[in-house]
Amino acid sequence: MKSFNGKVAAITGAASGMGRTLALQLAKEGCHVSISDVDTKGLAETVKLVKATAPNVKVTSQQLDVSNREAMYAWADQTTKDHGKVNLIFNNAGVAYATPVEHIDYDKFEWIMGINFWGVVYGTKAFLPHLKASGEGHIINTSSLFGLCAQPTQSTYNATKFAVRGFTESLRQELDMMNCGVSATSVHPGGIKTAIARKSVASPEIEEFTGADSEQGKEFFEKFFITSAEKAADIILKAVKGNKRRVLVGPDAVAMDAMVRTLPETYQAIIVGQMKKMRDKQIARKKRKAAEKQTQSA
């Protein structure tokens, strides 16, 4: 797919972040868009921005929980009805949940798996027949840097993103064998400047491993969000045009991927060492603040 002009793209998680930016950049290239999200307010804003950016492009929207299989299939059918065809599905919606394995809440594990993994599966299967019917289609599934390497307190997130990677790589091989005009790409973003950290869920026990409470942890992670959503969308769309099997988004993703492939076992020890240093700094900082507060009160 060398051009998006005249094509139709469906995008989940389009109320903000990469999903919104993908919609805007596709619209600029003449691609009609069908967007969805659970956030109706953000979704309406994206529709407004798309219309302002590309008045001649058709945009439709749908409030959607991607973990709802029936709703995903209904949206795929409705998108085809509204636009006449579908060429691309960006399974982009995602959430984060941080906790040590010992303290995993099963309900929250099922919640994150439902969105991050099953949402991708449902989106792929619901749209695949429509993509094949279009004669020229592409499935873009968002994994993560954490679909390439593991991180303490991120076991549930890692599980979903490693699963997306495996699912998509197998899918791509099957599509290659079928030669049906449809392809697939696994996307691995590093730290992208979106609201995912702010919207993430963390257990109280997270402080035991990081030395910081959940809010401090979110602020810490955001420091590593170095790639803009616009840059990320540009990289992803170029990868689709180049029919790449996978795409690393951001210098951090490129660097970590290289380290994991070069040091498949040692990288874990390196991460643990860094995490321990950061935890010790947090604990020392808290002790200093407590001592200063005690001195002032005295």
Rank of each mutant, 00 (worst) to 15 (best):
S200R: 08
S200N: 11
V201F: 15
V201W: 14
V201R: 15
V201I: 14
A202F: 04
A202R: 06
A202S: 15
S203D: 15
S203L: 11
S203G: 15
P204N: 03
P204T: 05
P204H: 04
E205Y: 09
E205T: 09
I206E: 07
I206A: 06
E207I: 13
E208D: 15
T210Q: 03
T210W: 09
G211D: 08
G211P: 05
A212G: 06
A212E: 14
E215L: 07
E215S: 13
E215A: 12
Q216W: 03
Q216I: 06
G217F: 12
G217M: 12
G217Q: 07
K218G: 01
K218H: 03
E219K: 13
E219W: 08
E219I: 05
E219N: 11
F220V: 01
F220S: 04
F221Y: 09
F221H: 00
E222K: 14
K223E: 04
K223L: 11
F224S: 09
F225R: 03
F225V: 01
F225A: 02
T227I: 02
S228K: 07
S228F: 06
A229F: 00
A229L: 00
E230Q: 11
K231I: 03
A232N: 05
A233T: 01
D234Y: 07
D234T: 12
D234W: 02
I235L: 00
I235R: 08
I236P: 02
I236N: 00
L237M: 10
L237I: 05
K238D: 09
K238L: 05
K238C: 01
A239I: 01
V240H: 07
K241N: 08
K241M: 11
G242T: 07
N243Y: 08
K244Y: 05
K244S: 10
R245C: 08
R245D: 11
R245P: 09
R246K: 12
R246G: 12
R246H: 13
R246W: 09
V247G: 04
L248N: 02
V249Q: 05
V249C: 04
G250I: 01
P251D: 13
D252W: 01
A253D: 04
A253F: 02
A253H: 02
V254M: 12
V254D: 08
V254C: 08
A255K: 14
A255E: 10
M256R: 11
D257H: 14
D257Y: 13
A258P: 07
M259V: 15
V260D: 04
V260L: 03
T262F: 12
L263I: 09
L263R: 11
P264C: 05
P264E: 07
P264A: 04
E265A: 15
E265K: 14
Y267K: 03
Q268S: 12
Q268H: 15
A269R: 15
I270N: 02
I271D: 02
I271T: 12
V272T: 15
V272E: 13
G273T: 04
G273P: 01
G273D: 04
Q274P: 00
K277R: 14
M278S: 11
M278R: 01
R279L: 03
D280V: 00
D280F: 05
K281T: 08
I283W: 02
R285L: 08
K286D: 07
K286G: 13
K286V: 00
K287G: 00
K287W: 01
R288A: 10
R288G: 02
R288K: 15
R288H: 12
